[in-house]
């Protein structure tokens, strides 16, 4: 396949003073792939995503998104990607409707087209007419996530970065959105997906990378990862993940005081 990969990270490193958050990682993600990026808390996932999206400059290394160099053409890259961060930090004094349309306009869509797409997206994420007129600050976490997802999709990005996209979203909407995302990959959209819910990752992702302490510990399909971890190709993702990041019950796991609150009240 000669087609340029949608995402290419080459020897990517990020250092914050004394902390090496991402340590010389390289990987590529092909067009139309549903790529899972896993790691325990503080492993360097969010830092990597921020660098890939052009929101953070790497200490060293090179990133290409759809063939464009992030360092040379950050705005060009931003126009190609859709981002759903784990913590939705958005303009919470806009209504849901205004927020999604605003997002379309910021990507250069004409107003009537932005409104048309917003209408369809809000229908898809099941945000009813009353909720659309409410301010985002009054939304629940799940509704915020849904609105942010609509913002990430409105300009038809070629690459989607989704950080815990289903966190706080109800089961019905989750299922609907999962179907949409799978449909998008069929159309050639690349999805870079991080989550701690390994069952969903296993179900959706075609390839997975595992990062721990800033370094890539393994990459491939679940079967390939099982082999890399020495567990065999039939191992489940959870076992592979725990094996690669050195998990297990820590000493002190037996919390012997649970169920025995202090006798004295305030």
């Amino acid at each position: 396949m000669n087609e340029a990969p949608s995402i290419a990270a080459v020897e990517l490193t990020k250092r914050f003073k004394e902390t090496l958050a991402v340590d010389n990682i390289s990987f590529t993600v092909g067009r139309g792939e549903f790529f899972g990026f896993l790691g325990p808390n503080g492993a360097g996932k969010t830092t990597t995503i921020k660098m890939l999206c052009g929101l953070m400059k790497p200490t060293s290394g090179r990133i290409l998104i759809a063939g464009r160099d992030v360092a040379a053409d950050p705005l060009g890259v931003k126009s190609q990607v859709g981002i759903l961060p784990e913590t939705v930090e958005t303009f919470d004094r806009l209504t849901g409707w205004e927020l999604v349309v605003f997002s379309g306009l910021m990507h250069g869509l004409p107003e009537d087209e932005a409104e048309r797409r917003a209408e369809r997206l809000l229908e898809l994420i099941d945000l009813n007419a009353e909720d659309r007129g409410r301010l985002v600050i009054d939304y629940s976490m799940g509704m915020r996530k849904k609105a942010a997802l609509a913002c990430a999709l409105i300009h038809g990005p070629g690459v989607l970065f989704l950080d815990e996209p289903f966190n706080g979203i109800d089961a019905i909407s989750t299922q609907a959105i999962q179907k949409v995302l799978q449909g998008l990959t069929a159309k050639g959209v690349t999805i870079f997906y991080t989550s701690h819910v390994l069952e969903v990752v296993e179900k959706l992702c075609t390839r997975i990378a595992i990062i721990h302490e800033g370094r890539l510990r393994g990459m491939g399909t679940v079967a390939e990862l099982g082999t890399q971890a020495g567990l065999g190709s039939g191992a489940g993702l959870e076992d592979v993940f725990v094996s690669m990041v050195g998990g297990g019950l820590r000493p002190g796991g037996d919390l012997d005081w649970i169920g025995k609150p202090p006798a004295a009240g305030p």
Binding site: C53, G54, L55, L75, G76, V77, K78, S79, I83, P85, E89, T90, F91, D92, S103, M106, H107, G108
Partner: peptide, 15 residues
């Protein structure tokens, strides 16, 4: 006025 949402604003590909 943006506060933490400034990251979102700067994530747009707008000049």
């Amino acid at each position: 006025l943006e506060g933490v949402a400034v990251r979102t604003l700067l994530a747009y590909p707008a000049p």
